[in-house]
Design a protein around this nucleic acid. Structure first.
Lengths: 344, 344
DNA sequence: TAAGAACACGCAATCGCTTGCATGTAGAAT
DNA sequence: ATTCTACATGCAAGCGATTGCGTGTTCTTA
């Protein structure tokens, strides 16, 4: 060991006790006298004893750590979710290990496998946009790894899930565009693999239907890589322009910012004419030009709820069979007309 | 064990070998016949054997993982650094564990201690803006934990460091403001504890000096919490306004976006009159209104370089005594006048 | 043919910690 | 005074993997 930290054995030797007694004192178990417990604790404090979590993990077959898989941390939504996760996990003495899939299925699987082999006690995951086959997760789950999905969740997988009210969020955003007079509303969205894609599409369609606007499939553009490559965004934008949309509803954080960028690069003038509404948790929307109406997800809360559910699974005495899907409401943040008019 | 993964013992039993032989075959050591090696490898493959990293860590006293401490991942600069770190680490079979200090010294120390106790093989750290005392890092370092600092580095700590050319980046940005006719240039910056704060201040001062502009300390505002609280930004902005600056140079990613926001909230009209230059690695600067000239750090590369240095320390046969401080050049990205004029 | 070298493998200790079981001691109960 | 109970502590196995050392086998060489 490079670090000559003191071990339970050192303490035992110094105090003329056995390692078992020391361990029990430290773990505060019942079969120990108040006296020796105090003695041990005092000495441990003195030498700044830290239990070796590795050894404990090996022995106990658990690590008090939970794994997180997101597509990328450089994404406001996900980093806020992670903060929510941490806020609960640390409170309950769990540590978190973050991994990025970068929207790649292979990377996702690699990371999950690695985490699993490091004895994480549970997994919080938002699927990558490439992911179609989740058998590898089923295997792990069957072997006893608690898994909670958030944001991008699979169907036919019985476990806890936490999602935003995607339908309503999309409906509201689309309706907002319609109410501000738009009629040809495009929809830029993620890979069809994702649950959020399907749900948000439905919300968009429902809003159109409510106002008797025909749904035109050509106005819907899918980005298979979730906007990771700027080309896919530019292609989508270029394909949309000839259809002369007067509004566009965008279905995810990365897509929203990427799309505005693509619009600006492709046709800056048009970028300022089209009305934009999109999912984003960016704290900087107020700085954006063109400005947009945003659908904000309760990301922090989503992380918290998912973590609570996960920890309840981890610590459950008996196998959990009653699963819930928590649906959290989104918030529509409209353009502040005044400000945006004044300076555009 | 929840996961009934196969162990080396299982393989040994199944093949009628000893665990030592299996281990040696898997580790590809010399005292083993080609034949049994193949046998073992084939069987291991078949049962999808994964060595238990926890057990290995315990035995070998290392974990093949490196710890990262940044102030927050929801920061373009840091998330890009992390991506750079990952790109090298994964290549060399290391895993990374990310922790956030949220600019709090206490949180930083807590996280570092936790990482250290989890047997990380090395640490990559950018200090929090609160951090003044790094004795706890010295202790760990003395006990043998390799540490490489990046971005926010301490003085009087002999180890590898990787930083941007903060002086030049600041000089260039300030000079740019001067050359576009500004004379009263404010400087919004981080806590004085940070190396980047001092270096960037010097660059700012040097540029002023070059053009014979008197340095006015009142024009420099420090944010002790690195802009984590919006109040400190608003206060700073409000204090600056009476001095009627015509330009402002901002010293970090979070501060830059936060400051523009504060300007907009405080006095939107003024926000569009003042010329802004600032450090930021945001991919969205082109969307910002008001627009700004940005100093972009080679974040990804910084992560890569730091990781290479760290791994070289970890794998060094003898204690490293020759340390380097790598300085990477920044890039000045000027406002695209055309675009910004057209739509402002 | 006999002795030594080279090789392939097993035994067992070890990393630091937890815990079931055994043991010893003191006080309570008869 | 003797037995029983309760409590405090120690012993030792085990988590999964690595590795120094010892041993048995085969092959080489004189």
């Amino acid at each position: 060991m490079r670090f000559e930290t003191s071990t339970i054995k050192d303490i035992a030797k110094a105090l003329g006790l056995s390692t078992s007694t020391v361990s029990r004192a430290l773990r505060d178990r019942y079969e120990i006298s108040e006296e020796t417990k105090k003695l041990v604790l005092a000495y441990a404090e003195k030498v700044n004893y830290r239990a070796n979590p590795i050894a404990r993990s090996l022995k106990e077959r658990r690590s008090y750590s939970i794994g997180i898989i997101v597509s990328e941390i450089a994404n406001n939504f996900f980093s806020q979710v992670i903060n929510g996760i941490e806020s609960i996990a640390y409170d309950k003495d769990y540590h978190v290990i973050i991994s990025q899939s970068h929207e790649s299925f292979e990377q996702e699987k690699l990371n999950v496998d690695h985490l699993a082999s490091r004895s994480i006690d549970g997994l919080l995951i938002a699927l990558s946009s490439e992911t179609q086959n989740i058998d590898y997760l089923r295997d792990l789950y069957a072997k006893g790894l608690p898994i909670v999905f958030f944001d991008r969740v699979p169907e036919n997988f019985e476990t806890h899930k936490v999602i935003a009210n995607n339908f309503k969020g999309s409906f509201d955003a689309t309706e907002h565009l319609i109410l501000s007079g738009k009629r040809t509303i495009a929809h830029l969205t993620n890979s069809e693999n994702l649950s959020i894609t399907r749900e948000r599409l439905k919300g968009y369609q429902a809003a159109l239907a409510k106002y008797h606007i025909d749904f035109n499939p050509d106005l819907v553009k899918y980005c298979q890589h979730g906007g990771m490559h700027s080309e896919e965004l530019e292609t989508a934008v270029k394909e949309l322009l000839p259809l002369k949309p007067d509004g566009i509803f965008i279905a995810s954080d990365r897509l929203t910012t990427g799309c505005i960028m693509a619009l600006k690069n492709t046709n800056p003038e048009f970028a300022h004419k089209i009305a934009i509404a999109g999912f984003t948790n960016s704290n900087l929307v107020e700085l954006f030009s063109p400005s947009l109406t945003s659908v904000r997800q309760p990301a922090f809360e989503m992380g918290q709820v998912a973590t609570e559910l996960l920890i309840s699974m981890i610590e459950a005495k008996r196998p959990v069979v009653d699963f819930e899907t928590r649906i959290l409401d989104t918030e529509l943040i409209k353009i502040q007309k005044a400000a945006s008019n004044k300076f555009l």
